[in-house]
């Protein structure tokens, strides 16, 4: 067994055991922290597909996170008020049914990623970064000036959405849902990385011209990966909004894009569990250092600098070596 596989198993085991301990010890706040880490990890897994496997340095993944969040917020707020979202060309009512909300979040964020990717993937390098950032800012300012859904103040949802057979207000049960989704997505990502699609995407990152020479259309390949990546981050956005029962334009801000990118780099770009380890570390630092100083980001910046300069495989690279494993 490769060392990275062993580390991945340990991380997964800790994600199962830590909240169970917190539940036994009656520490619901710890479960909420773990839930936050798992959801952010899911957002990072989405970005990691574009950034790590595809080499697309997107600085606009907050768009998909926000679209997923607002999909949840809009559906749930309309369910609360019993007002349909629209009546033409067909009646579409709000919902508090989690699977439907997730589906809408995936579709809407995937569609946003398809549209943004179709435009931005015609560029590369710094232009790609700037265009994705610009889209993020466009969505940010649009939601600020969208009074129907709270504008700058955001939108509150008073009751957590439901899942058949579970009490989602119970922190441990909601955590279980989030962890199950993360595990499913990680499994799918491990399969995708080993599929011919994933291999071609990885090959295109290494040498675009060579991939074209063997008959693979790089633009379409990257667009498909960017869309899947956006849809996963959108799903994370819906869960994040459900966790907080609140959505606001901050979800679209460039700081959100930056934070997702930071913990993917901290954990290990292109490593399956890199975003998971990065998100856990990010939450731990936020919790521990945030208690010491409100300027805790200074320490985070120093850590990021250290990782970029001395540990380019991220934390998982330090622990398991720089070779990338797919499982």
């Amino acid at each position: 067994m490769q060392r990275e596989t062993l580390i991945n198993i340990i991380v997964l085991a800790l994600l199962v055991l830590f909240p169970l301990w917190a539940w036994q010890a009656d520490e619901p706040f710890m479960i909420t922290l773990a839930t936050r880490a798992v959801i952010l990890a899911l957002a990072g897994v989405g970005l990691n597909l574009a950034l790590g496997l595809g080499g697309m340095v997107s600085f606009g993944h907050a768009v998909f996170f926000g679209v997923g969040g607002y999909a949840m917020g809009i559906l749930a707020s309309h369910a609360q008020s019993y007002e349909p979202i629209f009546e033409w060309p067909f009646l579409f009512e709000g919902s508090k049914f989690m699977p439907l909300i997730w589906l809408v979040a995936i579709l809407s964020s995937g569609l946003a990623a398809l549209a943004i990717g179709a435009l931005s993937l015609r560029t590369s390098g710094v232009y790609f970064i700037m265009i994705t950032l610009a889209f993020g800012q466009m969505f940010f300012y649009f939601t600020i000036s969208w009074p129907a859904y709270g504008g700058e103040d955001g939108l509150s949802v008073y009751v957590r959405n439901g899942f058949p057979g579970l009490n989602t207000l119970d922190p441990i049960q909601f955590y279980g849902i989030c962890l199950a989704i993360l595990a499913i997505v990680l499994f799918a990502m491990s399969r995708l990385a080993r599929s011919s699609f994933g291999l071609a995407l990885s090959a295109a990152r290494q040498n675009e011209e060579r991939v074209q020479a063997v008959g693979i259309g790089v633009f379409r390949l990257r667009l498909m990966a960017f869309t899947i990546s956006g849809a996963i981050t959108g799903l994370a956005g819906a869960l994040f909004a459900d966790l907080n029962r609140f959505v606001s334009p901050v979800m679209f801000s460039w700081q959100t894009s930056g934070e997702i990118m930071i913990f993917v780099i901290l954990g290990g770009v292109g490593r399956l569990y890199g975003p998971v380890i990065g998100a856990v570390l990010f939450i731990v630092l936020e919790h521990e250092l945030g208690g010491l100083s409100e300027y805790w980001h200074i320490y985070l910046g120093a850590l990021l600098l250290g990782v970029v300069l001395f540990a380019r495989g991220g934390l998982i690279g330090v622990l398991a070596g720089r070779e990338v494993a797919h499982d």
Binding site: E209, Q212, A213, V214, G215, I216, G217, V218
Partner: peptide, 8 residues
């Protein structure tokens, strides 16, 4: 044709 189309 583009490169990938020629390869195909």
């Amino acid at each position: 044709m583009r490169p990938h189309q020629a390869a195909r």
